[in-house]
C-alpha cells in the first residue's frame, strides 16, 4: 500500500475510484468515528464515501484522522 498510496499506518482505509486518468483516491482515513463501540458510531466515513461515489457525487469528508500503528516502509 505505501509505495502506491502512501499508507503509513494500520488501519488506514483508502477509497479509490477508477477513472479514465487512472485510480483517484477519494477518501483516506478511519472506517467510522468510534473504534471502540460499533453501536455508538455516529459517522460511517467509508460507507458515506462509497455511497457518494456510487451516486456520482463528491465525497463530503475526504480525510479523517485515526490512531494506528506505523507501517515499516
Amino acid at each position: 500500500m505505501y509505495p502506491q498510496f502512501g499508507a503509513t499506518k494500520t488501519p488506514h482505509i483508502y477509497v479509490v475510484e477508477k477513472t479514465e486518468k487512472g485510480n483517484v483516491i477519494k477518501y483516506i482515513g478511519a472506517i467510522d468515528d468510534n473504534y471502540q463501540d460499533a453501536d455508538a458510531v455516529k459517522s460511517r466515513y467509508v460507507e458515506a464515501a462509497v455511497n457518494a461515489l456510487l451516486k456520482g457525487q463528491e465525497v463530503e469528508v475526504k480525510e479523517t484522522k485515526a490512531i494506528g500503528c506505523s507501517i515499516k516502509v
Binding site: Y35, K65, A66
Partner: peptide, 8 residues
C-alpha cells in the same frame, strides 16, 4: 474515541 477531533 473522537480521534478525528483530538489528533489535530
Amino acid at each position: 474515541v473522537d480521534s478525528n477531533t483530538w489528533i489535530p
